[in-house]
Structure formats: structure tokens, C-alpha cells
Amino acid sequence: SLTLTVRGEEAVRRWYKWAQAHNLEVEVETHGDEYVLHIK
């Protein structure tokens, strides 16, 4: 499992696509303009 902090929706989309390509689940938490992604 992997936890990432990114800024901006574009980065979130990029990681989301990456995770889907690897059959992984993604949980997204929003903290202001930062997003915490939990990839499992």
C-alpha cells in the first residue's frame, strides 16, 4: 500500500489512472488544496 500527498486535481487523476491500470483501489482525502491518496 502507498500513501501520497499531491497538489491539484490533475495529479490526482494521473495517479487514479495509474492505480486502475494496476487493479488497485484508491481512497482520496482532501485537505484544502492538497490531496492525500491511499493506494491499496
Rank of each mutant, 00 (worst) to 15 (best):
E10P: 05
G32M: 05
V6Y: 01
L4D: 01
Q20W: 09
A11K: 04
G32S: 04
A21P: 00
I39Q: 00
H31D: 10
Y35V: 06
A19R: 00
G32K: 05
S1Y: 14
L37W: 01
R14H: 09
V28N: 01
I39C: 13
E27S: 13
G8H: 06
R14A: 12
E25Y: 13
A11N: 12
A19I: 07
W15G: 01
L2E: 04
L37P: 00
V12S: 04
H22K: 06
E9N: 06
Y35R: 03
E27N: 09
H31P: 02
V26P: 02
T30V: 15
E9H: 08
H22V: 03
L2P: 05
T3K: 10
L37Q: 00
V26G: 00
A21Y: 12
V6G: 02
Q20F: 08
W18Y: 07
E10K: 11
T30H: 13
R7G: 05
H22I: 03
T30Y: 12
N23H: 12
L37N: 00
E27A: 09
E29N: 05
W18M: 02
I39T: 01
G8C: 09
L4A: 04
G32Y: 04
Y35N: 03
H22W: 05
H38M: 07
V28R: 02
V26M: 14
H22T: 02
Y16T: 15
T5A: 07
R14F: 15
L24I: 06
K40A: 07
T30D: 10
V36E: 03
I39P: 00
R14L: 11
A21I: 11
V26K: 00
H22E: 04
R7V: 12
G32T: 04
L2T: 05
K17S: 10
G32V: 04
E34R: 11
S1D: 14
A11R: 06
E29Q: 09
G32Q: 05
A21N: 10
K17P: 01
E9F: 11
R13P: 01
W15R: 01
H38P: 00
D33A: 07
K40E: 04
G8T: 15
E25W: 12
A19T: 03
R7T: 11
G32D: 08
G8Q: 03
K17E: 15
L2A: 04
E25D: 09
L4H: 04
E29V: 11
W18N: 01
W15I: 14
V36H: 07
I39E: 00
T5S: 06
H38D: 02
E25G: 05
D33W: 04
K17T: 10
E25I: 13
E10Y: 06
E27F: 14
E10I: 08
K40R: 13
G8M: 04
V36C: 11
V28H: 04
G32F: 05
H22L: 09
L4Y: 03
T30Q: 15
E9S: 08
L37F: 04
D33T: 07
H22F: 06
T3H: 11
Y35G: 01
V6I: 08
A19L: 10
L24F: 13
H22G: 02
L37H: 00
V6S: 01
E10H: 09
D33M: 06
L2M: 10
E10L: 08
V36I: 14
L2I: 13
T3W: 06
V28G: 02
V26W: 06
R7K: 13
V26H: 01
A11F: 05
H31M: 11
V28E: 03
V12Y: 15
G8S: 15
Y16F: 15
L2S: 04
L4Q: 03
L37Y: 01
N23L: 07
Q20D: 07
E29P: 01
V6H: 01
W15E: 01
L2Y: 09
Y16I: 15
A21W: 11
L4S: 02
H22Y: 06
Q20G: 04
T30A: 15
S1G: 14
Y16C: 15
E34F: 15
E25Q: 13
E25A: 10
T3S: 09
E29K: 08
R13Q: 13
T3M: 09
D33L: 07
T3E: 06
V36F: 05
V6Q: 02
V26N: 00
G8P: 01
R13Y: 08
D33S: 07
V6L: 04
R13S: 07
V12G: 03
H38T: 14
W18G: 00
S1L: 11
V36D: 02
W18A: 02
T5Y: 09
E27Q: 11
A19G: 03
S1R: 11
Y35L: 06
E27M: 12
Q20P: 00
V36A: 02
W18Q: 01
V26S: 01
V36W: 05
E29D: 05
R14D: 08
E9T: 09
V12I: 08
Q20H: 09
R7P: 03
E9D: 08
E34S: 11
Y35F: 13
G32E: 07
A19N: 01
I39L: 07
L37M: 06
Y35K: 03
L24D: 01
Y16A: 09
K40I: 10
W18D: 01
W18K: 01
T5P: 03
T3F: 05
H31K: 15
L2K: 05
N23T: 03
K17M: 12
N23G: 15
L4N: 02
V6A: 03
H22A: 04
W15L: 10
Y16E: 14
D33P: 06
K40S: 12
A21K: 11
S1A: 11
L2N: 04
